[in-house]
Each structure stands twice: as C-alpha cells, then as structure tokens.
C-alpha cells in the first residue's frame, strides 16, 4: 500500500526545466541591430549566431553577396560571442540570409530579432 501524498516528488523539477529552457531560448536569439554613424551611414551588427556556424565563413559569403565590407568583432568579455559587423543597413538582407534554407543558414525566423528603427 502506498500513500499518495508521500511520494517523492521534486516540486522544482518542472520549474527548473522551464527556467533552463527559457534561458536557453533567450540566449539563442539572434539580434540584428543597426547603428548610426556619421551622416546617413549605418552599421549593422549581428549578434548571437550559433556556435556551430563559422563566423568567418559566413562573413566571407555575406560580404560578397551584399557587396559590403564587414568584420568579426570578438568580444573580450565573451558575453556576446562573436559579432558580425557589416557596413550599411543590411538588416533585411541578413535576415533573409539567416532564414534562407537553400543558400543561407536555414534558421528559424522566430529566433531572430531585428532591432532599431
């Protein structure tokens, strides 16, 4: 005979799971931002591309495709990982590239957040 109430049950198991899932999700977001430079020039930064992709290779392809220059900025604080920085407003293009299954990375559009105006 077993008493229902006294079963071993970890009340935090679910919460932990949920929590970890959430933090994972927030970390997985890819942020595309735009920054103003002088005049009507802008920079586009792409932050949080998954580690399994090689940022250098992405940059090489993207630079050719968008006809713009760009660099990879390794963050010393290692908070944000590698950031791809492109010249000009490439937000729409880079988003297409990231979501494109045939020629791009084929990522889920939900994980991408486009910031800025």
């Amino acid at each position: 005979m077993s008493i229902e109430n006294l079963k071993t049950y970890d009340p935090f198991a679910e919460a932990d799971e949920e929590d970890s899932g959430q933090t994972k999700q927030t970390q997985e977001y890819i942020h595309i931002r735009i920054q103003q430079r002088n005049g009507r020039k802008t920079l586009t930064t792409v932050q949080g591309i998954p580690k399994k992709f090689d940022a250098k290779k992405i940059l090489k392809v993207v630079k050719k495709e968008f006809a713009c220059n760009g660099t990879i900025i390794g963050d010393e604080d290692s908070k944000m990982g590698d950031v791809i920085q492109l010249q000009g407003d490439q937000r729409a293009k880079i988003k297409d590239f990231l979501t494109n299954k045939d020629e791009g990375l084929g990522l889920d559009a939900k994980t991408i957040k486009v910031h800025g105006f």
Partner: peptide, 12 residues
Amino acid sequence: QAIKTGFSAQVG
C-alpha cells in the same frame, strides 16, 4: 524581457 542594450559597435 528586461531592456538589454546588447552589443554596440564603437563608432568613430
């Protein structure tokens, strides 16, 4: 979500 600034490139 809390407001996060994220990466900002050094301009100039």
